[in-house]
Amino acid sequence: MNRINKLFSEKNKNILNVYYTAGFPDLESTTVVLNALQKHGADMVEIGMPYSDPLADGPVIQQSSMIALENGMTIQILFEQLKDCRKNFHLPLLLMGYLNPVMQFGIERFCKMANEVGVDGIILPDLPVYEFENEYKKYFEQNDLHFIFLITPETSEERIKKIDRLSTGFIYAVSSSSTTGNNKEFDEQEKYFSRIKQMNLKNPVLIGFGIKDKQTFDIACKYGNGAIIGSAYINALNGSADIKKTTQQFLESILR
């Protein structure tokens, strides 16, 4: 059973999915961060594959991506770093990135290697539903990888239903119309969250974008099955002298 489905079958509330950028702050940080997140209470981890032109990301993740690229991170190196990770790491693992680097790596080869190193799901925000269905779906399915779709406050109900039908792992509900790491107020989003909740989708829903502390995490968990935190954690890692300690403190501040 795919680890994502297993997780949701065992725990369907207050799921904490943490994002970080591979190769940040240092090239060799990838597995250090991964294991620290497991140790200190994350339920799921999403590793960002850095890209030169991350359209859906705000300044924090743009910056971490640029540093990771300067550090020399590539998809090939990431797979090498993750090759043995499953000896110690047991949480569901997602890779998030943009289509172009994956396309250059070769979509088929990418899916195959992702499966081999123990990845459970893929998020590529600029691979839209039409192209996914038309050309890419088979590669993910063949390799037991869930493809995670995003929905936003602007997504129509009809389209949410379609995305729910196509999804197999969970649905990534973007909290507001924004790039990652925004500071938009959460109050006005609650109507949207409750609209999603009332739709009784077959897939679990994780809420992301703008989740930065305990308060926003708790609101997200009220409406979704959990939340995704990215930019706030990257901010914490930025300039950290001790990744393990920073990760412990950060997760404790969310989960306390």
């Binding site: 839209p128 936003t152 973007v174 119309s177 790039t179």
Partner: peptide, 11 residues
């Protein structure tokens, strides 16, 4: 060609 856009731009 095509339209390789994140869902946020879809509508």
């Amino acid at each position: 060609g095509g339209a390789f856009i994140p869902e946020m731009l879809y509508p």
